[in-house]
Structure formats: structure tokens, C-alpha cells
């Protein structure tokens, strides 16, 4: 079946089974490998992408669900100026170690700060609770989001 959607601001049409996972379309059909698979069942958040600006686990999303919608992966996010603030904060605060969870973490952070530029610690934790990290113990990630939020403020 031909499926039309927008990825990282470009229109695309893919000819795949409508039940195919969005994750597989992104990685295998469009060769955008920044989106990762850590569990394949919605537990880890490594596959997080934005669908119409809301974070989704792309491993649980059939491609048919994004027909006509706007999907953003890390390859799109990294072109934004907000990304630079977030990535810089992750670098300064040690928010990334092995890097496998990192694109998902950055997307979850991006989505949070878009809707809530000055989150409380509780709000940060809730927003990132679907994203597992086995390396950092999360402290570096929390600090990164705090710093990105402060820095974003100065840019406002």
C-alpha cells in the first residue's frame, strides 16, 4: 500500500504493508538510523519520534497511523536552533554516555521544552519516564534538561 506522510519537513511516499512499524519504515526504508530500537515493545523510548509534535514510540506505531501526519526524527530535530541548546546542555552536563538512548532522550526533551519551557523537576521526570538509560543514572540527563531550560530562557 502506498503511504504518504511528512518526514522531517519532506513529503514522502512509501509502498509498504500498512501494519509495518513506523520504526522499520524510518530505519529500513528511509535509512534514517538515528532512531534506535531498544526493546521493540514500548518500554525503552530509544525509538522516540515526534508525530505532529507529540512523542511516540515508533516501535508501537503502525505506519498507517501516520498517514498525512508530520513525523520528526532526530535527523530533523538536529536542524533546529532548539537542538543546539539541548545538545550543548547534554554535552556540558554529561547527559550522554553510550549514546544509544540519546536521540530519544533529546527528542523527549525537545517536546517537553516546546510545550513547557520551564519544567519543574517533577515535570522533567514525568516527561522522560518512558525513556530508559542504563549508563548515566539519569542525573546527567536531569541536569542537562535543567540547563537547556535555563539557556532557552535566555534565548527567549
Amino acid at each position: 500500500m502506498k503511504i504518504n506522510f511528512v518526514i522531517n519537513k519532506h513529503n514522502v511516499t512509501v509502498d509498504v504493508d500498512p501494519s509495518m512499524r513506523l520504526l522499520d519504515v524510518i530505519r529500513n526504508e528511509l535509512h534514517l538510523t538515528g532512531t534506535k530500537e531498544g526493546c521493540g515493545e514500548g518500554s525503552c523510548g530509544a525509538c522516540t519520534v515526534l508525530v505532529d509534535n507529540i512523542p511516540y514510540d515508533s516501535c508501537l506505531t503502525p505506519i498507517a497511523n501516520v498517514i498525512g501526519k508530520e513525523v520528526m526524527t532526530i535527523e530533523g530535530i538536529r536542524e533546529s536552533k532548539e537542538y543546539n541548546v539541548i545538545a550543548d546542555a547534554f554535552a556540558k552536563m554529561g547527559g550522554s554516555q553510550c549514546g544509544f538512548c540519546t536521540p530519544g532522550m533529546i527528542i523527549a526533551t525537545y517536546a517537553l521544552l516546546q510545550s513547557n519551557p520551564h519544567p519543574t523537576d517533577e515535570e522533567i521526570k514525568v516527561a522522560l519516564s518512558g525513556n530508559l538509560c542504563r549508563c548515566t543514572g539519569y542525573q546527567g540527563i536531569i541536569n542537562s534538561v535543567r540547563l537547556a531550560s535555563q539557556k532557552g530562557e535566555k534565548n527567549d
Partner: peptide
């Protein structure tokens, strides 16, 4: 209070990992 890491340098692999450019085994084409 955010920590200050005075003795630290930028990690050599940071930029690629954050941008989703680092190539893991599953990403090799």
C-alpha cells in the same frame, strides 16, 4: 544548583551521538 566541571573537556564522541549520527552495528548500511 547545576554542577561545574572545571577539569572536563568535551567528549570526542558527543556530537555524533547526540545528533543520531553515530553508527552502531544495526545502523551499518
Amino acid at each position: 544548583m547545576l554542577p561545574e566541571y572545571k577539569t572536563s573537556v568535551t567528549k570526542v564522541d558527543n556530537a555524533d551521538k547526540m545528533a543520531g549520527k553515530a553508527i552502531f552495528t544495526g545502523d551499518i548500511q
